[in-house]
Write a protein that binds this DNA or RNA. Structure first.
Length: 693
RNA sequence: GGACGGUUAGCUCAGUUGGUUAGAGCGCCGUGCUUACACCGCGGAGGCCGCAGGUCCGAAUCCUGCACCGUCCACCA
């Protein structure tokens, strides 16, 4: 056995064999066992539209550490894997692919398109699954779920029906965020703001002068609003004033509204309810006094027939023409244009196109702040209550405040999308659900569909481990929908990790070319080195600067473990057991005592989600306490035939492998299989050394 | 505009309820191929713990203010 051990550890040869050994042994598949404590993690289902990236490697590592630790602690440990069809995200990726091939989405018959997209998604899903295996993820593949599985869709539909019955769903004509490029509505979370410098025009408007950056929306004006406290305009309030526009004369009503800032521009503002969120709300407050929204821009970002001679022009072009015509007609004084006006513009978070607030029919919304008809709290309040009463705890704690703050000012959730890819909305042929509406049900939906009895036993789950960047998109929705549907918060802890950045702390992105492919790292240095590098010296919630040096440092550690084992196995090969069981040197006592202490501390660290602490402790212990001190001492002791050094070497090695296993599963299992003193068939199901908590 | 995070050795970062000479990895300097490992061992240099106050017997750790970097939320024409 020992003679077969190479001088240097070579992960490539063994990792995949070891993984098959575990998977075939059924060690990832827990039983429903009332005598055991359940430990459950739902894997955040990766988007099945590409390969795994460094962020996936991080979550796989952290979740695997917890799962392996709890499995060794004797809990019935389920880590349920999955894949997400990822509606809009996948649509964007797929549209780009089509574009490269010179094709267009709307030129392909829908059925054909959907089939092609499904093939694309399933093939990505298969790739991801094999990549997760390479990372050592000990998740239960026999329970794997996909967000387009029939039973998941059924659950999504039944939740939708429940919401409808409770009066929490409404369908209507509402102003939504419209992406002109992707031809779909987006939720408030899917837009971001960019600072732009645009001209601010002071337009003559009857007796008023109005400041605006978007003169082209003027044709959609239905009122002029002023602040009730503004003495300058008091005399016009309530009147229809005559105004001249580039299209001729018209009459428009002047109203009072608190929201108008007297100090901005001229203190008078045009109200364009069809193309501006604030104006839409203004109209809602003055429905009886002023006409409703007048649409002047179509869904392709062009002026419609309401714009007279400008009809058919794109927004930018129309704006230029209109401004020029206004100047000609004396409706705009060139000197009064403020050219360097800085303001924020809403853009699509994927493509950066300007978001057009658009009035669309048949949009589905979920009411966030209204109580359901059947009684109880609103979705928002259910979530707030659960967090405030500590049924759900955030790690790190500060995310609790961020979560609650976001909950405070929630608007209704637009759950309809006009893309083909997704779960169709029942009875609505042209729209699908926002993908987060289905993934927001992931914990209970996946458990209900996995195996009989799973939901009852494994729900609520223990930990939701995911990226801090999707706390609103996903975590918030899971909390609300989870409690609403099942009556219980879907998880007890939310552990949030940061972003994996490159060595200069830059965001990884394809365009920058600084993306680290985790599978390439595995190929080169082994999965254990990658995993250890990701947890070592990284505290919860913090971003990680990821570098080659960190990985090689851990590869060296793996090599150290390998060689320590090589030494221990060869040194103890020929010894008789219990040669001199009574005698223990001070060095023997010290190492055993330290081991005990380390095991206890590590358990506490992992229980408290301080994985980096646990990783550093075992690293320190193994390398510097065990190898540098004890192994060196043991050589002297063996030369003197003093004590029972050989047994202690084997014992400490075996116990160390247990402590290391959640972090570096492959090398530890491989060495464990060579031990003469192993206690179980596999290290993965060994007992954690810490006897008491 | 609002909230939050960071600022500790050359670099990347730990430091969990405040307590003896502040730690790690990489890097650097010196040295050793001692029969596990040179992907190593041994020894060493290097830190007014962002700045200014305050609380305390005692503060990197708690409080106040400031500076710089970063993140998130909101978004008024």
């Amino acid at each position: 056995m020992v003679q077969q051990m190479e001088k240097n550890y070579n992960p490539k040869d063994s990792e995949q064999k070891t993984y098959s050994f575990w998977e075939e042994g059924g060690y990832f598949t827990p039983e429903v066992d009332e005598k055991k404590k359940p430990f459950t993690i739902m894997m955040p289902p990766p988007n099945a539209n590409g390969a795994l990236h460094a962020g996936h490697a991080l979550f796989a590592t952290l979740q695997d550490i917890m799962t392996r630790y709890h499995r060794m602690k004797g809990d019935s440990s389920l880590w349920l894997p999955g894949a997400d069809h990822a509606g809009f995200e996948t649509q964007v990726v797929f549209d780009k692919k089509l574009e490269k091939e010179g094709r267009r989405r709307h030129e392909i018959p829908k059925e054909e398109l959907l089939k092609e997209m499904m093939d694309f998604t399933l093939s990505n899903k298969a790739t991801m699954e094999s990549q997760l295996r390479r990372l050592g993820a000990s998740c239960d593949w026999s329970r794997a779920k996909f967000t387009l599985d029939k039973d998941i869709i059924d659950t999504v539909y039944s939740t939708f029906e429940k919401l409808e019955k409770d009066g929490l769903i409404y369908k209507g004509s509402r102003l939504i965020n419209w992406c002109v490029k992707h031809q779909t509505s987006l939720s408030d979370l899917e837009i971001k703001y960019e600072e732009r410098t645009d001209p601010l025009y002071y337009i003559k408007y009857g007796p008023f002068k109005l400041a605006t950056v978007r003169p082209e929306t003027k044709f959609g004006d239905t009122a002029i609003a002023v602040n009730p406290k503004d003495e300058r305009y008091k005399k016009y309030v309530g009147q229809d004033v005559e105004v001249e526009t580039v299209l001729g004369k018209a009459r428009i009503k002047v109203i009072e509204d608190e929201s108008v800032d007297m100090d901005f521009g001229t203190g008078a503002v045009k109200v364009t309810p069809a193309h501006d969120f604030a104006d839409y709300e203004t109209w809602q407050r003055h429905k009886d006094e002023i006409p409703g929204p007048k649409i002047v821009i179509d869904r392709y970002g062009r002026m419609n027939e309401m714009a007279g001679p400008y009809a058919g022009m794109k927004i930018g072009e129309a704006r230029e023409k209109i401004v020029a015509d206004m100047i000609k007609k004396g409706l705009l004084d060139e000197k009064e244009i403020e050219h360097n006006y800085k303001h924020n513009v809403a853009v699509c978070f994927k493509c950066g196109s300007v978001i057009e607030p658009a009035l669309m029919d048949n949009q589905w919304f979920v009411k966030m702040t209204e109580k359901p008809k059947s009684g109880g709290l609103s979705l928002r309040d259910l979530a707030v209550k659960a967090v405030k009463e500590e049924n759900i705890k955030f790690i790190p704690e500060r995310f609790e405040k961020i979560f609650l703050q976001w909950m405070e000012n929630l608007r209704d959730w637009n759950i309809s999308r006009q893309i083909p890819w997704g779960i169709p909305i029942p009875g609505d042929k042209k729209q699908v659900f926002d993908t987060w509406f289905s993934s927001g049900q992931w914990p209970f939906a996946a458990l209900k569909g996995a195996k009989k009895g799973d939901f009852e036993y494994f729900y609520p789950t223990t930990v939701m481990e995911t990226g801090a960047d999707i706390i609103f998109f996903w975590v918030a929705r899971m909390v609300m929908l989870g409690i609403y549907v099942t009556g219980q918060a879907p998880f007890k802890y939310v552990y949030l990790h940061g972003l994996v950045r490159d060595k200069d702390k830059q965001k990884m992105s394809k365009s920058k070319g600084n993306v680290v492919d985790p599978l390439g790292v595995v190929e080169l240095h082994g999965a254990d080195a990658l995993r250890m590098a990701l947890v070592f010296a990284n505290s919860p919630g913090a971003d990680i600067a990821f570098s080659e040096e960190k990985i090689t440092a851990q590869r060296r550690f793996a090599n150290k473990i390998w060689n320590a084992a090589r030494f221990v196995l060869s040194a103890t090969e020929k010894t008789e057991p219990n040669k001199n069981p009574q005698a223990r040197t001070q060095a023997d006592k010290d190492i055993l005592e330290t081991l005990e202490k380390i095991a206890k501390e590590m358990a506490k660290d992992i229980d408290n989600f301080q994985f980096h602490e646990a990783a550093q402790k075992i690293y320190q212990f193994f390398w510097h306490t065990f190898c540098d001190v004890y192994i060196e001492e043991s050589k002297k002791q063996m030369a003197r035939e003093q004590g029972n050094t050989e047994q202690i070497l084997l014992y400490v090695l075996r116990e160390s492998l247990k402590l290391l296993h959640p972090f570096m599963p492959f090398i530890t299992e491989e060495i464990y299989q060579m031990l003469p003193n192993k206690e179980a068939k596999a290290l993965i199901i060994e007992k954690w050394p810490c006897r008491k908590d």
